[in-house]
């Protein structure tokens, strides 16, 4: 057990940080080792992996999955699931690009409208989950179809091309010449998520609602509100991912984000969050997403065909989660 460190008044900030870091490492020891072993293995096979260019590349490619996975962590902690994020990526991308290309909206207005579309889909999920007895799996499965269909209807099934530097810079630009813009968004989102989960009532209540709904009710927590907020956040994050992706592809594509929800869920589960709800950490999810990102980058560097990549990815997920379950059981 950790010593009672707060006995003599306040902890110093450095103590807090070092405490947080050691706690993080201890909690995620298993997958951290997995990630490091994976990196070492890949860099032995192909030393290019460790080049700063490639590492930034990995981060940039992983960042959209991380947006989704961070929000997915909250939804799963709540005892829910969100299958609709992949389709929301497509519909927000299509709406944003249509507004710019067809209707000539200023980029920032179109982006705001795209984010709003994502939030609305998320809020709809949350509202239906919170006010009916339809299981979240079904609700978001339905929304997944609706949003995908909407993307096809709006775009008439064809990519919507955008010729705008300022729009393209959203996803492809660099900050200070080295930091990819999507990674900057990721850092901002991580800070916000950290504050939500650790500093606000909202974060605490997510654990309460997912861990013991009865206790949450007795404590007078507004369960509906918590659910609606979490799903709305998930929709918003899908919107951010949709805009970043369409910007990088110079077009809004109705097929974008196909199966993205499954990568996000895989990252969450790899990160040690229980599908049963009530437990889990954003930090673990970040490592989980990194494992998935490093793995596909490494397989690309090694020239493994994308067909085989699916098989490798599936196998790694199965083994990693099984190892985690065994480890947790032995701890008890």
């Amino acid at each position: 057990m950790t010593p009672l460190t707060y006995e003599n008044g306040k902890e110093s900030i450095w103590f807090k940080i070092s405490h947080a870091v050691t706690g993080f490492v201890r909690e995620n020891m298993g997958i951290l080792i997995g990630l490091i072993v994976l990196c070492i293995f890949i860099s032995i096979v192909n030393p290019d992996f460790l080049s700063s260019n490639n590492l930034m590349n990995v981060l940039r490619q992983t960042s959209t999955n991380m947006y989704l996975a961070i929000a997915m962590t909250m939804v799963i902690i709540l005892g829910g699931i969100d299958l609709s994020v992949g389709s929301i990526i497509a519909v927000t991308g299509v709406v944003t690009t249509l507004l710019i290309a067809m209707l000539g909206f200023p980029v920032w207005v179109a982006v705001a409208a795209g984010l709003l579309v994502g939030m609305l889909f998320g809020a709809f999920n949350g509202y239906v989950v919170a006010t009916t007895i339809i299981p979240p799996f079904i609700v978001t499965l339905a929304t997944m179809n609706i949003a995908r269909g909407a993307a096809y209807v709006f775009s008439d099934g064809k990519p919507v091309r955008v010729m705008s530097d300022s729009f393209n810079n959203i996803g492809s630009g660099y900050i200070g010449g080295f930091l990819p813009a999507p990674v900057l968004y990721l850092i901002i989102i991580l800070i916000i998520a950290y504050i939500i989960m650790n500093k606000t009532k909202l974060g605490r209540y997510m654990y309460a609602v997912g861990g013991n709904p009865e206790a949450a009710k007795f404590a007078g927590i507004n369960i509906k509100k918590i659910k609606i907020l979490a799903y709305t956040f998930s929709g918003l994050m899908a919107g951010v991912a949709g805009i970043v992706l369409s910007s990088r592809m110079f077009s809004g594509q109705p097929t974008a984000g196909d199966m993205a929800e499954l990568d996000a869920i895989a990252a969450v589960v790899l990160g040690g969050t229980s599908m049963a709800g009530g437990s889990g950490k954003i930090g673990g999810t970040v490592i989980g997403a990194l494992i998935i990102g490093v793995l596909s980058n490494g397989l690309n560097l090694m020239g493994v065909s994308s067909f085989w990549q699916y098989i490798v990815k599936g196998t790694v997920i199965l083994i990693a989660v099984y190892a985690d379950v065994i480890k947790k059981r032995n701890q008890l």
Binding site: Y207, A208, G211, N212, E214, A215, G278, S279
Partner: peptide, 12 residues
Amino acid sequence: IVLVPYLSIAEN
């Protein structure tokens, strides 16, 4: 018992 399993004593 109606406590939240993954929150701390203080938080509960």
